[in-house]
C-alpha cells in the first residue's frame, strides 16, 4: 500500500495503484494516477472515465472489456464503442486502466 497526498487530502493506493477508498476519488486524483500510467488525459479520456463511473454506479461492477466497449458504444456512439478506440486511449488494458483512473476496484472478471 502507498500513501499519497493530493490537494491536502491523504489517500491510500493498493499495491497495483488502485484507489483503496472509492469515495476519495476526484478529478485531481485521476490526473495524478494518469501520470503514473503515463497517460496524458484528454477530453476523450474523460468521456470514458465518466462512462465507466456511471457503469459502476448503475451495476456495482467494474466492467470487463466487452461490457465496457458496449457501454461506451451506447453512451458515446458506435464509432467510440470499439476496442481499438479504447486501446488507443488506454494502451495497457482499457478495462483495468480506465477503472484505475476512475477510482474503481480492479475488474474481477479478468484472469
Amino acid at each position: 500500500m502507498r500513501h499519497i497526498t493530493i490537494a491536502d487530502k491523504d489517500l491510500t493506493l493498493d499495491d497495483e495503484g488502485y484507489l483503496l477508498d472509492l469515495t476519495d476519488w476526484s478529478e485531481a486524483v485521476a490526473e495524478y494516477l494518469s501520470n503514473e500510467e503515463q497517460i496524458q488525459l484528454t477530453d476523450a479520456h474523460w468521456e470514458i472515465i465518466h462512462v465507466i463511473r456511471d457503469f459502476y454506479r448503475q451495476y456495482e461492477l467494474s466492467p470487463a472489456m466487452r461490457p465496457l466497449v458496449k457501454a461506451v458504444g451506447i453512451t458515446l456512439g458506435d464509432d467510440k464503442g470499439k476496442s481499438i478506440y479504447l486501446m488507443k486511449l488506454f494502451p495497457q488494458s482499457p478495462a483495468k486502466q480506465a477503472a484505475k483512473l476512475a477510482g474503481l476496484p480492479k475488474p474481477t472478471n479478468c484472469l
Binding site: 457503469f55 448503475q58 466487452r66 461490457p67
Partner: peptide, 15 residues
C-alpha cells in the same frame, strides 16, 4: 451487501 438486482441488470451488457 451489493445489490444483486443491479448486478443482474448488467447481464445484457455482458452479452
Amino acid at each position: 451487501q451489493k445489490n444483486l438486482a443491479n448486478i443482474c441488470s448488467a447481464l445484457p451488457m455482458y452479452d
